[in-house]
Nucleic acid binder design. Structure first.
Length: 227
DNA sequence: CCAGACGTTGTT
DNA sequence: GTCTGG
DNA sequence: CCAGACGTTGTT
DNA sequence: GTCTGG
């Protein structure tokens, strides 16, 4: 990606939210770009919730929100050491429900490809922050970033990086704020927890203002979760 | 992530 | 070439 | 000590 | 808020 994805309100995504024991529903969003509000699942104590957050992490110590630095992705490598990321990584982790995401490859310009699970939705690892005065919850901004890692071979043909996709049996640990993030670093490996397809899509979605379902082009390629 | 702007003076 | 906006 | 950074991707 | 560079 790790800078464009889709959220579809379909059985696959609902199944993921059910699995996480989250009741709320999502709104369909296509061609989501950094700085948009996106749904993420987080856990406070033992309570999980779906909450819309600004997709561009705003560290709590900033005087004012800014976009000077690219903060919508956070590299898994160095996450525990990064000044900007390590605090939220420690106890403010979240999951991005993702129906499909987009990667680009240079082919006479930029050709977008849709990566989509064959079955179910993706649980992408993330971190979140809260910015603003403690006493004014309505004025606070919640923000989030997706964690990235090296692409697995099947996806590397398109792009060298990809979001960290968590397997189902890792989700409870990932969301548990009682666990220190540093103890969860082994979860942040390049891996496909499910089979996915990679398929070219129309280039007009390169423009982030286009918010329609992308038209597929050509044949999908199946990438097995083990290769 | 990609696309598109990136600027001023003066007029409506 | 680089920054901003979506 | 204080000031300034704190980031990613992709390309060369 | 905390680390790095000067």
């Amino acid at each position: 990606m790790c800078g464009r994805y889709n959220v579809t309100d379909d059985p696959a995504l609902r199944a993921l939210l059910d699995y996480l024991n989250v009741k709320a529903a999502v709104t369909e969003q296509y061609n989501i770009t950094p700085t948009e509000n996106v749904p993420v699942v987080r856990q406070i104590g033992s309570e999980r919730e779906l909450r819309y957050m600004h997709w561009w992490l705003i560290p709590h110590w900033l005087e004012e929100p800014q976009t000077t630095y690219a903060m919508f992705n956070a590299r898994a490598e160095g996450l525990a050491e990064s000044r900007a990321f390590r605090a939220p990584f420690k106890r403010q982790r979240c999951i991005f429900p993702v129906s499909s995401f987009i990667e680009w490859r240079a082919e006479d310009g930029k050709q977008p490809y849709l990566i989509q699970p064959v079955e179910g939705a993706l649980a992408v690892a993330g971190i979140w922050e809260r910015w603003g005065e403690e006493g004014k919850p309505e004025a606070q901004i919640h923000s989030c970033a997706m964690i990235t890692t090296d692409a697995v071979p099947g996806i590397h043909k398109i792009h060298a990086r990809m979001p960290v996709m968590l397997p189902a049996d890792a989700l409870s640990q990932w969301l548990d704020p009682a666990i220190d993030g540093r103890d969860l670093l082994p979860l942040l490996l390049p891996q496909l927890p499910v089979d996915v397809t990679v398929q070219a899509v129309e280039r007009r979605i390169n423009n982030g203002r286009v918010k329609e379902r992308p038209e597929l082009i050509g044949e999908p390629e199946l990438i097995g979760r083990c290769g």
